[in-house]
């Protein structure tokens, strides 16, 4: 049986209060949980916001970096392009320089050859000048003979020679002077006899080893290198025979042939002048 009275009411109020308190407590707990959840949510959002902000900032930095890198890349590409252009330019320069170098080297060689040729010509002319100057520098017969010997020794390169004059009747060559050979073998040489005799007969200079010399099947004096007919006004007045050349002299050269030509006329003239200077009736020969 239910008791109505103040006690019941109080108990009921107390129970209600208790329940209500419990509910409030429960509500409070729920609210606290909710608050904690919300706080966590807020923190999470805050973190996300911060991260997002950071990400945005980072993205901006990256974008700026990318932009910088892009600019740098363009700059480097331009530099590379310029370097390639320069390289190409240098290559062209190098090619041009090489071409010029090859051309310059060819020119240098040509100049060197020309220089050597000019020097050679100078040397020949100097020899001819020296020979001519020396031959006409004296009217003494012995001096002329000495000069001829020196020309043969120093300019041609032989220490063996024989100098002849034509006999008064023109029948034979008579030995005037000789060096380094056996004089007895050449006291007299007749026209047509041996290479010396043939040279005075033809009026042509004989040089051993030439095709003309080899074509002639006749006897040649041993060791003879050249036989030079000495001529005055187209008349043979004597002869110069040059025998063995010095060991270091390889053979008769063009310059020697020119000297032979010079001797053919100038030695004849010099010897003739020396005879005239010696006076009529006097034999200037040794």
């Amino acid at each position: 049986m239910q008791e109505d009275g103040p006690g019941t009411f109080v108990r009921k109020v107390a129970q209600d209060t208790h329940r209500y308190s419990q509910e409030l407590l429960e509500e409070n707990r729920k609210l606290r949980v909710l608050l904690a959840t919300l706080e966590a949510e807020r923190q999470s959002l805050s973190t996300k916001a911060r991260l997002a902000k950071e990400a945005v900032a980072s993205s901006d930095a990256l974008k700026a970096l990318v932009d910088t890198l892009e600019t740098e890349k363009q700059r480097l590409q331009e530099q590379l392009l310029r370097a390639q252009e320069e390289l190409e330019h240098h290559r062209q320069d190098q090619h041009e320089l090489r071409t010029r170098l090859v051309s310059t080297e060819a020119e240098t060689r040509e100049f060197a050859e020309r220089y050597a040729h000019v020097e050679d010509q100078n040397s020949k002319l100097a020899n001819l000048y020296v020979a001519s100057y020396q031959l006409h520098g004296t009217v003494d017969f012995q001096e002329v003979v000495t000069v001829i010997r020196e020309i043969v020794a120093n300019l041609i390169g032989s220490e063996e020679l024989a100098l002849f004059k034509m006999s008064a009747d023109g029948s034979a060559l008579e030995l005037v002077a000789s060096f380094g050979i056996e004089a007895e073998l050449y006291r007299k040489v007749f026209p047509g006899e041996g290479a010396i005799g043939r040279a005075i007969q033809s009026g042509e200079i004989y040089v051993a080893g030439t095709s003309e010399a080899e074509d002639a099947p006749a006897v040649v004096e041993p060791g003879l290198t050249a036989a030079i007919p000495l001529q005055l006004d187209g008349r043979v007045t004597g002869a110069l025979a040059v025998f063995r050349l010095l060991p270091q002299k390889p053979g008769v050269e063009d310059a020697d042939r020119e000297l032979f030509e010079l001797l053919a006329s100038h030695a004849a003239t010099a010897l003739h002048c020396a005879r005239l200077h010696a006076g009529p009736g006097q034999d200037a020969q040794p």
């Binding site: 050597a116 020097e119 120093n154 390169g157 060991p247 270091q248």
Partner: peptide, 28 residues
């Protein structure tokens, strides 16, 4: 020197020369 053979050249160097040329003298 007129003779360019070894013997002659050797004699030249023994006498105290520094160098030699042979005849006929080449200008160059």
């Amino acid at each position: 020197t007129t003779r360019g053979e070894g013997e002659n050249v050797e004699a030249g160097f023994e006498s105290g020369c520094n160098d030699y040329v042979t005849k006929p003298v080449d200008g160059l």
